[in-house]
Write a protein that binds this DNA or RNA. Structure first.
Lengths: 355, 355
DNA sequence: TTGTAAGCGTTATCAC
DNA sequence: GTGATAACGCTTACAA
C-alpha cells in the first residue's frame, strides 16, 4: 500500500497533506533525502557509514543536511536499533561529593564512547531506588550502574529480568556471585582506622557516625572488630545517628560525646565532614588534637589535608571506581562481559596530624 | 497467538513466527493486550488514562501487565508524542559544588513532574558547550537549562532554531532580551565585597582569582569598581590565573602575593576554596587574620562557616537558582511562558570573622 | 467504552 | 552503491 503514490490521492477531497517535517518542525531524514535527491536510506548510510556511499552522494547529503539544519533523532534511531546509547546511574544523593566523584569518573569514561549517563537519585533508600530504577528502565538504557549492593528483592528481580548489563559500585560482592562490582572493602577500611587508633596507644576509642547506610555500617563494623581484637571495645562509646552528615553535626555530636564520656582519647568519625566539625569544636573548646583527643575521618574529602592540624583519614578511590565501573559496563555492553566480576580498588589510610 | 503452544510447532515447517516481544525480549503493549484479551490501544488507555476504561478491563490489564513484567517503552512513547520528558542540563563541571547545588535544585523540582534531567558537561568552554548541546538536542529534550550567558553564536542560533524553551542560570540578562534567566548579579556581589573591605578601613586590598570564567570576571570587575570608587585600586594587587580553583591553589597564590606585596592588608578570593587555602597558609605562617590581613571568599561553600576564624564570604542562592530555573522551564514547557524574563535571586554578604 | 488504521523518524533487510 | 519495505512500540485520530 505504500506503493500508492500520494499524488494520485487528490483525485478526491485531499485531507491535510504533510509535505514536510511534522509537528516538531524539525527536518527529518526524508526532508534531507528529497533535498539531496536520494532516498532516506542513503541519507542514513551517508551519515552513519560514509564508506558505504559514493563520494558524490555523501557530499550532497552533507550539504543538504547542513542547509536544513538537520539533527537526526536519537529517539527514532534508538527505537529502530534497540540501543539508546544511554546509561542509567543511580546514586543516593547529589549533595554528597562522594557520589559526585564517582559520577564524574563515570561520565568522563562513558562520554567519549557516545554514551549518555542519565542520573537518578535514590535518597539512600532501597525502595526509592526500586522506584527510580523502574522509571528509568522505561527509557531502555543500554547499561545500569547502581550504588552499593543493598537493593530490594524486587530490584534484584528487575535487574535479572533485563538483558542490560549492571554494575554495582562502592562495595565488594560478598561472594563471587553473578554481579559486576567495583569498590573496596568498607569493613577493612574501618578496621584499618580502628587498628591505627589502637596502635597509637589510645585506650578510650569512640565512634561517631551519621547517615547510616550499609556502607557506613560496614565501616563501623570493621572499626569495632579492630577494637574487639585489641580488647578495647566499649559499646557505650559508639554514637550513631541517622541524620545526614555535616560539619555542624560533627561539632554537635562531639559535644554530646564529651558530655557523656569526658575520658575518650580517640574518635573515629565515619565521614570527613563530621571530623572537620569535631576538629573545629576542639579548637573552640581548646581541646588539644591529637594531644588529648585523636581524630580520624573518612573519605579524604577536599579540605581534609587543609585543616589545622591536617586530618588523618582514609582516602577512597571514588573517581577510579567511576572510571572502572564505566569500563566494565562498556565491555559488557559490547558483549565482552568476561573480565573479573568483583574489582577491589582498595583504600589508603592517610595518617596525618590529628592522630 | 500467544495461545499457540510451542510444543505444537513441529507439526509443520512453521516459518519463524513472532509470538512475543522481539529483540529486547521485553514484553510490549501488544503482548499485554493479547494476554488481557483487549487491543493494544486499550492497554495504553488503561495505563495512561485509567478513567477512560472500564473498571474490569483496567483490572485485567493491570494483572496481565504485572504478570508479564511489562515496562512501557518511553522511547516509543516519546517518538509518538514528540515529548521525551527529558530536560538537557549543561554545566561547566561536575566537580565544582556550585553547579552541583544548582543541579540538585533542578532535579528536585523536575523529578516530581516526571521530567528527567540529562546532564552534559561543558568544561567551561563555549565551544564544548555547543558540541554537547548539539549532541543532546538529538535526543529531543523538552527543555534546556544552560549555565551562564556566554555561548557561541552558533549556540544562540541553535537555541533559537528549536521549539524548546531554554533557561540560562547563574547570571542576569544584561538587557531584558528574549532569554529566560535566573541568577544574581555577579558584578554587584563582587562590588559588595570590595566595598565591605574598604569600609573595614583596609588600604591595600588585593584580589586573587582562578577559573576565569565570565562570572568570575564579573565578580572581579565589581570588586575593582568598588575600589576605584574609593580611590584605593592598585592594579598590581590583582593576581588572576586560569587554573581551576582549589584549596592548594589558594595557599600557593597567597604565598606569591605576599612575596610580591608584603604590605597588603586585605584580600578578596573569588572562591571559597581559594580563601580556605589562604586562611590555612596564614595560620601556618602565623599571619593574624583579620588583624594583619583580612580575607573574604565567595559562594559560602560548606566549610566556610567552620574555618578558624570563620570566613567572611558571599552566600549565593545556588539551590534556589536551580529550583527557580526548573519552575520557569516547567511553566514554559506547559505553554505558560509569560512570567518574568530575568529573575534576580540576589546574594548575601556573610560578614564573619576574617574581615 | 473499545478497536482500527496510520504514523512518529529511524534502521535492517533484501532487492536491484 | 542505492532504494523500497517493513519493522521498532507506542499514541493520535477516528470509527464502531
Amino acid at each position: 500500500m505504500g506503493g500508492l503514490k500520494t499524488q494520485h490521492r487528490n483525485a478526491l477531497p485531499v485531507p491535510t497533506r504533510k509535505p514536510r517535517s511534522s509537528r516538531t518542525g524539525r527536518a527529518t531524514m526524508a526532508d534531507v533525502a528529497t533535498a539531496a535527491g536520494v532516498s532516506a536510506m542513503t541519507v542514513s548510510r551517508a551519515l552513519n557509514r560514509p564508506d558505504k556511499v559514493s563520494e558524490e552522494v555523501r557530499a550532497r547529503v552533507a550539504e543538504a543536511s547542513r542547509r536544513l539544519g538537520f539533527v537526526p533523532s536519537r529517539l527514532a534511531a534508538a527505537l529502530a536499533t534497540a540501543r539508546s546509547m544511554t546509561v542509567t546511574v543511580l546514586i543516593p544523593s547529589l549533595t554528597n561529593s562522594v557520589f559526585i566523584d564517582v559520577l564524574a569518573g563515570i561520565q568522563e569514561t562513558l562520554s567519549p564512547h557516545g554514551y549518555q549517563p542519565v542520573i537518578g537519585v535514590t535518597g539512600y533508600t532501597p525502595e526509592e531506588e526500586e522506584r527510580v530504577l523502574r522509571t528509568q528502565l522505561a527509557s531502555g538504557p543500554d547499561g545500569v550502574i547502581l550504588t552499593g549492593l543493598d537493593h530490594t528483592p524486587a530490584t534484584w528481580d528487575l535487574l535479572r529480568s533485563i538483558p542490560t548489563p549492571v554494575v554495582h559500585t562502592m562495595d565488594l560482592a560478598p561472594d563471587a556471585d553473578d554481579a559486576l562490582t567495583v569498590g573496596f572493602s568498607q569493613f577493612d577500611a574501618g578496621h584499618a582506622v580502628g587498628r591505627h587508633l589502637v596502635e597509637r596507644g589510645r585506650r578510650r576509642i569512640g565512634l561517631i557516625a551519621g547517615q547510616l547506610d550499609p556502607r557506613t555500617r560496614q565501616r563501623c563494623d570493621g572499626w569495632r572488630q579492630a577494637l574487639v581484637e585489641a580488647g578495647r571495645h566499649d559499646p557505650s562509646l559508639e554514637l550513631m545517628v541517622p541524620d545526614s552528615t555535616s560539619v555542624a553535626l560533627g561539632a554537635e555530636l562531639l559535644e554530646r560525646m564529651l558530655a557523656a564520656h569526658p575520658d575518650i582519647d580517640a574518635l573515629f568519625l565515619c565521614n570527613d565532614d563530621l571530623a572537620q566539625g569535631a576538629l573545629f569544636h576542639c579548637a573552640r573548646r581548646s581541646i588539644a588534637v591529637p594531644g588529648r583527643l585523636a581524630l580520624a575521618g573518612f573519605n579524604d574529602l577536599g579540605g581534609a589535608a587543609w585543616t589545622l592540624p591536617p586530618l588523618t583519614t582514609v582516602a577512597t578511590p571514588r573517581h577510579a571506581i567511576g572510571v572502572e565501573a564505566a569500563h566494565l559496563l562498556l565491555a559488557a555492553m559490547n558483549g565482552r562481559d568476561d573480565g573479573p566480576r568483583s574489582v577491589d580498588l582498595g583504600f589508603r589510610l592517610m595518617v596525618r596530624e590529628t592522630t
